[in-house]
């Protein structure tokens, strides 16, 4: 799952080398923390979170049905 988010994020940003994704096991599911260069944060979130929402939907579709996955974005 981490690899998937890494691939998507790297495809969207201007500085793919600065993308980092860490997996944290949260209380109710997996949390994927995405960290990008500060100039790139808008590219990953998008207008009104459109891109961030799309990333979450894709991750949910790729994961098992009963798994809760949370994608957080920071710079």
């Amino acid at each position: 799952m981490r690899e998937l988010v890494l691939f998507i994020t790297k495809s969207l940003v201007a500085e793919p080398d600065k993308v980092q994704v860490t997996e944290v096991q949260g209380e109710d599911g997996l949390i994927l923390k995405v960290s990008v260069a500060s100039e790139d944060i808008g590219k990953v979130i998008g207008k009104q979170g459109r891109i961030a929402k799309a990333i979450r939907t894709v991750v949910k579709a790729a994961g098992p049905l009963d798994q809760r996955i949370c994608v957080e974005i920071e710079s």
Partner: peptide, 22 residues
């Protein structure tokens, strides 16, 4: 890749459009 009511298509389309326009 379709998703409920085409939600996943919609999401994939958003991402593909971003890659394409950039």
């Amino acid at each position: 890749l379709i998703g409920k009511r085409g939600q996943t298509i919609e999401a994939l389309q958003v991402l593909a459009a971003v890659v394409y326009s950039r």
